[in-house]
Design a protein around this nucleic acid. Structure first.
Lengths: 207, 207, 207, 207
DNA sequence: CATGAATGAGAGTTCATTCAT
DNA sequence: TATGAATGAACTCTCATTCAT
């Protein structure tokens, strides 16, 4: 039986490898879409494989469980954006650049990956945001960087934990509002957020 | 006949009603706790009654379904805080009072009702926030009030939708951070949030 | 507590007795109606007491179980009609009288008790007919009487079991058809059935 | 990809399909038996699968619900017998042939399908007969054919609705009696029913 | 490795019955 | 004895996971 399969599948060299990563990609993409749409518990493995040309059991050749693929997606997302954020902030010599880089990078990322889980706008009216170890680590990094920036005199001395929370809250909530708009504009959103954090609304004027 | 019986049973009805509302309270409290812990879908009705000395079927003497109690809790929360928020803002003649009143009222409420669902800090690493009609209406009210304040010259002309989202994001995220602290201080949190919104971090100095 | 109740209930002498049989009658009537409407399993005890001013637990002061009241109703029905049928047949000296008396009595009874269970025309399209010991005994009596009539030369020698079944089948099915008509006419139905059994359709002419 | 796989798996699909239809047959047979034994509402899906070597959930791989399999069985039965009945009657040029063909076909069918639901002889003492659209249509067809036969002068002018009901009542009741006998004899039963309908018992003599 | 039916624990819910009042 | 909330077994159905093919 295995021989027959290999005969059928190996007409091209490396076909197996190709199929394997192809299938993995199919499953990941389907999972991302479905988790983003329904959230973790309301998503069934059947939903995922139904969004795939594959069969139910095949799923388990790639992921040990529904939980595993979920965490894989979450971490994958956080792992992608975290280096971007750190790098963006690392070169910033002014408060404006520091804060703007943070928001801009985050909003750009959300636009690029808006099918993914970070900001799940589920059809049945629930915001789900996941605090995985990876994401928590991301918050930790932000806090560290804020501390460094304060130490370097780039940012004023404020309650760092509240500032971290504020930036996170603004980032998540504004990114959602931004994505609801006709044409998401990460530049404008980042500008708004940065101005708010730095100078408050006092110095803003509506365009 | 019913009247006669009730006359005869009056003394006991007091007891019964007492037990009844006691049980209702037990179930509500359990549900609040479990929903906050696990979110809607991961919570089972059995989880709720297990957190109670009652039997499985008893739940359904009080709520027709898992959905019904969930909505009851959500709306109860939103319906309680919304009038408070509106009233707090209504008398504010300055930007500072307006913004501070909003945050302070919200944080006070979170401290008072910290077992409730609105800001669920789940142990299994998920933030769930539900956009019920009630909560969405709350956002709408905030937006309206912001528009009025801008029209009245109390607040400067800024992107109202982004401002609404910003205040909401700050409120939810800071309230969570506040509750994680040893001694939640709504005054300090509201002060931080208000200063941030009005003047940004530029004018802040860490105490 | 008991004293209070008796004070309340005993203003008239024998009131208790009266209430008791009154309640029993209420429950029986409600049960008859609901069983006839929904059949045994789709009827809930709640349905029965809901059709009553009484409380759930009261039911069990009168009947040990749902099953018990169901059987009571079934047997009550059969026990009422069986003596009527026997008596009607007993005096019949001719085949026509014998057969006609059987059908006519049965159809009259159905008209009179059409809310009861014997011929249940349930709203969800099911015919339910119950073969309780009482009803089976009724069939047995019919068979006995047919045997006697044959022995007496009143009826010809035919397969008694098939004849019994035929009469039963005609009785049940025609009674249902009769009850579906605008104005149920037991006389006409009994005439039709009798003529069919005695002479077949050959000698009939449509009115 | 699916095509390739099916090519590769062709030999096994035969097995699988075989198992599949085997299981389907197991479930159908069990359902037929249990429904016949207990009727619709008293039958639980658990009863059905318990009468099977399969697991609880397997049922739902074949039927979406208890209702679906019930209707499948009902309609399957009615749909099988109806064309047979119509065809049997269609060629009949005399009253005897017409009536005999109807009963004989029905009784033959009952003998062949005696496990089925149409005529349920339940051990817990209930006859259940379901008026599905299919069965009602069967009655309608009988009535139509009777009307045609009367119009053609084959049958005398009698109350068609009562005649239809009579034939149905005789068919159901006699078939049950027939099946209770040691050796069911559809020919004899059909002869009895036909003679009864055509000439009544007057012309009969017990064998 | 793909397949997809089988599995069975467990979900939400109902309801006959019990029992404190 | 009437009350009606409490009970918990049993129901229909779902779904993550397994496994023979």
């Amino acid at each position: 039986m295995e021989e027959e399969n290999s005969r059928a599948n190996d007409r091209e060299l490396g076909r197996r490898e190709q199929t394997r990563s192809h299938n993995q990609a199919l499953i990941l993409a389907a999972a991302r879409a479905v988790f983003a749409e329904y959230g973790y518990s309301r998503t069934t493995v059947r939903d995922i494989i139904r969004a795939t040309p594959l069969a139910a059991g095949t799923f388990y050749n790639y992921y040990k469980s529904k939980d595993e693929i979920f965490q894989a997606i979450r971490d994958e997302t956080a792992l992608k954006v975290r280096p971007l954020l750190r790098e963006a902030r690392s070169g910033s010599k002014t408060a404006d650049k520091f804060i703007y880089a943070t928001f801009r990078t985050f909003f750009d990322f959300v636009v690029a990956e808006h099918a993914a889980l970070v900001t799940g706008h589920s059809s049945n009216a629930m915001h789900v945001r996941v605090d995985t170890p990876e994401i928590i680590a991301g918050f930790g990094e932000l806090e560290e960087d804020l501390a460094s920036a304060i130490a370097a005199g780039i940012l004023p001395r404020v309650d760092i934990k509240y500032l971290t929370a504020s930036i996170a809250g603004l980032a998540f909530e504004l990114s959602e509002n931004m994505m609801d708009r006709e044409k998401p504009d990460p530049e404008a959103a980042a500008r708004f957020a940065t101005d708010l954090v730095l100078g408050g609304i006092s110095g803003m004027a509506k365009k």
